[in-house]
């Protein structure tokens, strides 16, 4: 995958700018997600508020990058890898924007959670889930930045862990709610946060799928994992 080497230098710049903006948006979204998890785990109401009120920046970047992609489509009629880059970018930023929304949600719930006494026994599982999801998001963004299909594949392969972790947490919370119905409100907030984290994992997986589309030209959405693994390495050049 090469972005440069067009005869038109201006075209190289336009594509490089788009890529840079996506990386910046990725960095911003990642920091939003990190802060959201931190606010949740450390019961930091101030940080939670900051996360909840910063999502507009992510939204603005999505609109700007969308506009840049539209301009390239209209004026350059990109083909082949350039076309795949633009399509992948348009899709990646949609998922990034949604990750931003999930982080905002976690921020909102964390603010409320921080005002009440903590639920005991939840911290370790929640912390582990947060770690997994943030790691996955980071690797997905890294795979996009380096257009690294191997890393993208490994993220997709690892994404099942998150579902297991989420299921564990749900069971814990159900028990907790059954013990005392007064806990339900708090427990629901926690589960909504966990749900948001799980969604961030799903969006990260999507980003990895776009990386494979971008580099290999293969659309692996809605494909069985084993099928993907069977198909991709053969293609490895």
């Amino acid at each position: 995958m090469e972005i440069g080497h067009h005869i038109s230098q201006r075209y190289n710049q336009e594509l490089e700018e788009i890529r840079t903006h996506v990386l910046k948006m990725g960095a911003l979204v990642e920091s939003q997600a990190e802060n959201a998890v931190k606010a949740l785990l450390e019961r930091d109401g101030k940080l939670a508020k900051k996360v909840a009120s910063s999502d507009y920046m992510v939204n603005r970047m999505e609109v700007e990058i969308d506009e840049e992609c539209t301009q390239v489509l209209a004026r350059r009629q990109p083909a082949a890898s350039d076309l795949r880059l633009i399509i992948a970018v348009i899709k990646v930023i949609t998922d990034l924007e949604r990750i931003g929304d999930e982080a905002e949600k976690i921020g909102r719930y964390s603010r409320k959670l921080a005002k009440k006494p903590p639920i005991t026994g939840m911290h370790a599982t929640l912390s582990h889930l947060g770690e997994l999801v943030l790691g996955m998001l980071h690797q997905a963004l890294d795979a996009f930045a380096r257009m690294d299909t191997e890393q993208a594949l490994s993220v997709i392969t690892g994404s099942n862990n998150i579902n297991d972790e989420f299921d564990d947490l749900s069971r814990l919370l159900i028990t907790y709610m059954m013990e005392d119905p007064h806990n339900i409100k708090q427990a629901l907030r926690v589960i909504w946060c966990a749900r948001a984290l799980e969604r961030i994992g799903d969006h990260s997986r999507n980003i990895c799928e776009y990386v494979i589309f971008l580099v290999r030209g293969k659309d692996i959405r809605h494909t069985d994992l084993q099928e993907i693994l069977d198909e991709i390495p053969d293609d490895a050049d």
Partner: peptide, 8 residues
């Protein structure tokens, strides 16, 4: 706004 992205 440009927060850090590890590796970058």
């Amino acid at each position: 706004v440009l927060p850090t992205m590890p590796g970058l």
